[in-house]
Computed example of a mutant assay.
Amino acid sequence: MEPICVSPNNIPHDYSNSVEVYESAMREDVNEEDEALNMLNTFDKNRDGVLDFEEFSNLLQHIFQLGPIDMTSEEKLKSFMLLLDLNNDGVIDRTEFQHAWTHCFDKILHPVTALIIVDVQNDFIDGSLALRHCPAQQDGAEVVPVINRLLEEREFDLVVYSMDWHPDTHISFIDNVHMYPLDKGCTKRFDECCTYDEVTFDLSPPRTQVLWPAHCIQDSEGAKLASNLKVSPGAVRIYKGTNPDIDSYSAFFDNMRLSQTSLQEELEKRHVTDVYICGLAYDVCVAATGVDAVGLGYRTVIVNDACRGVMEDKIKEEKEKLQEQGALVLESDEAMKLLANKARPNFDLGCFTAKTMPPFAST
């Protein structure tokens, strides 16, 4: 199909060719500026060169395949429009629409996806820190078939495996607590500390650390990926927690953000817009990775049934925190539908994209 050029003489007042324009906009060989102009002209029903609320709502309803508009959804549409109405005049003009198309709608219509599989390693499944022996008694092995199904049935632009990769002197290990000075305010002595205790070490800068059994020691059997986990060809591996003096829950940064892994660089190289995160442990490394992904502006989906955690109350708390910050928490079936239906994106992820647009720079 050739790209559609909509002129003032053939703008359809009933949006009858909006499907064609939408499909044209999804073509990779269509110029971005033409995409934007086609969409603006198609939904500019009164031909005044701008989109009022009714016209903009029709555009959003078409893109996101929204159902009938009630009071709640109307408020959401108004909130979306306010994010794009840079001069607050109640309409979206051509300049505002072009800016929104480049920094918002283009990401929505042309998502680039990455699956980030967090720490699905032997020690968390049946080794020294097996989740089934943790307070929540969840079985880490249960995530493997769910993740394998995602890899087998959906195509991601990038697959990432993050891995705890600790030296045997790591600060997080309960057996090493005597190796680091405790803060003067700590109420316990070295020999009184227990697994899962949170202590503060008198380092520069001071750092708070949960104490864990030794796990995922570099080059050990326990540090290997689960043997039945599908490893995607061309996948990227991110090694974290390699500094003995600081932990690294997130696949992006260490816990104090003193250093970062190569994950953000890998995502940026491939122009990734959407990250799907799963793995172990939900309330620790998965949650930390999700929070950082949202903070860095990635449209973030946590695949709920492809995660298992340490503590029930903490899992609930971290899940709520992620949702409050803009991440979606979906079951794998829902995530697979979203991945299979890129041409009809999720409205909440679209709102997140609008909120994280860069400011407009006038020339």
Rank of each mutant, 00 (worst) to 15 (best):
P3Y: 07
C5W: 07
P12R: 11
P12D: 10
H13K: 13
E20M: 08
M26C: 13
E28K: 11
L37F: 07
R47E: 13
D52G: 04
E55V: 10
I63T: 12
Q65A: 12
L66E: 07
P68C: 01
D70P: 00
D70M: 00
L77H: 07
L77T: 07
K78D: 13
D85F: 04
L86Q: 10
D89Q: 05
D89V: 02
T95C: 06
A100E: 10
T102C: 08
P111W: 07
P111Y: 08
I116E: 00
N122L: 05
I125K: 05
G127H: 00
R132C: 06
C134N: 03
A136W: 04
E153H: 09
V160M: 05
W165L: 10
D168E: 13
D168A: 15
H170I: 05
I171V: 15
F173Q: 08
D175N: 14
L182N: 02
T187H: 12
K224Y: 04
N228M: 11
N228A: 14
R237T: 15
R237G: 04
Y239H: 13
G241I: 06
T242P: 00
S248G: 06
Y249D: 00
F253S: 10
R257C: 13
Q264K: 15
K269A: 12
I277C: 06
L280F: 02
V286H: 02
D292P: 04
A293H: 11
R308C: 03
R308T: 07
D313Q: 12
E318F: 10
E318G: 02
K319G: 10
Q323Y: 02
Q323A: 10
Q323N: 05
D333T: 15
K342R: 13
A343M: 11
P345T: 08
P345H: 04
T353C: 14
S362E: 13
